[in-house]
Design a protein around this nucleic acid. Structure first.
Lengths: 186, 186
DNA sequence: TAAGTTAGTAGACGCTTGTTTACTCGTCAA
DNA sequence: TTGACGAGTAAACAAGCGTCTACTAACTTA
């Protein structure tokens, strides 16, 4: 309480940003309070707005911090279904979901950041995926595939990883590949 | 203000329940305040808890009010993909989403009612769908199909209906049918 | 060493939330 | 007509929220 603390602007800023990233991913935007972030970062609550302006701007910076949808989309069109299937299969089993994705899904109903979420989904998944698709109705096909990805996140949020007894990894990937092919094929 | 009001217990109760159903579907659990429900129902806020106990119990009653996942699942196994595809296609275009589904998706991150949401998704979609599937890994296949359904709701919430130029209804249904077949086939 | 800058702190601000209390008064049985 | 019941009302409750202000004290610079 009455301990003195090292003065470390950059360090404190980074601790806050890290804590926010973790908490937003775990709990979603509106379940995370400024006081919770401050406690997790072991920093004073007033410093959050001093360094980031507001909770909303902090969330925006957390989103900006992350790269785009993990390299998954960087491949020729014909490999997309398999790559997406492997990604989902990983997320099905793994203990932690993708931090950005989790933050997006858990926060998608908060009107204050609705535009941030939408823009992020667009720029990180929807648009790059759509741009990689040849043939007609690329936007629509990309939207369905994206729905599958976000829906998987929602189910994971509801039931946790691997709620039902999941078949072996190869079978999962094979099925998911077939599904994404049905989504994305021209 | 100083007008006297008719005393109508059942009527008031129903107005509150209707208002709650509309608002929960439109905004999700935690964006709906007791005062908003009271205003929409043109009733006093204290009456909500008098008749329903608490906000949470009111939400539970709204969920219980609705039938299960609209008759979509009442068909032989081989017709399931087509039926689900038609359902999604309808929800893609229509101005209003399914009230229950909307409430579920918009509220899925509120911890206070997490168990209500999960149980409802289980009993209304996941379990009946899984029970109708023959062959191995029925639960897993049902989970993927459910992910597609809820994910479609999330995308709809983010982008509204028909954000991208959607192809004609027949093409949409054909593609969605193929996708659900890939999800559900043994 | 003295002055200025600024990271860090404590606490309050105004507001909203779900919930509850104390009360008014219409309705109906005795 | 009177008394009890209960639907409806207004106002307050405690708790929590994001934000902001006034302040302390550590570091830098002259």
């Amino acid at each position: 309480m009455d301990e003195t603390r090292q003065r470390d602007r950059e360090g404190t800023r980074r601790r806050i940003l890290d804590a926010a990233r973790r908490l937003f991913a775990d709990l979603g935007y509106d379940q995370v309070t400024m006081r919770l972030i401050a406690a997790e970062a072991d920093a004073n609550i007033a410093l959050i707005n001093r360094y980031f302006g507001s909770k909303r701007e902090l969330f925006a910076e957390v989103l900006a911090m992350q790269g785009r949808f993990p390299g998954v989309l960087d491949c020729p069109e014909e490999e997309l279904p398999r790559r997406l299937a492997e990604y989902i299969a990983e997320r099905l089993r793994s203990d932690q979901a993708s931090p950005v994705m989790a933050a997006l899904i858990r926060s998608s109903n908060c009107p204050e950041i609705h535009d941030l979420i939408r823009d992020r989904v667009s720029s990180a998944i929807l648009e790059p995926l759509s741009a990689r698709l040849s043939g007609p109705d690329a936007a629509f096909r990309a939207r369905i595939a994206t729905a599958l990805i976000t829906g998987n996140g929602t189910m994971r949020q509801l039931y946790g990883p691997e709620s039902s007894d999941v078949p072996d990894r190869e079978a999962v990937i094979a099925r998911l590949t077939a599904i994404f092919e049905a989504c994305l094929s021209r």
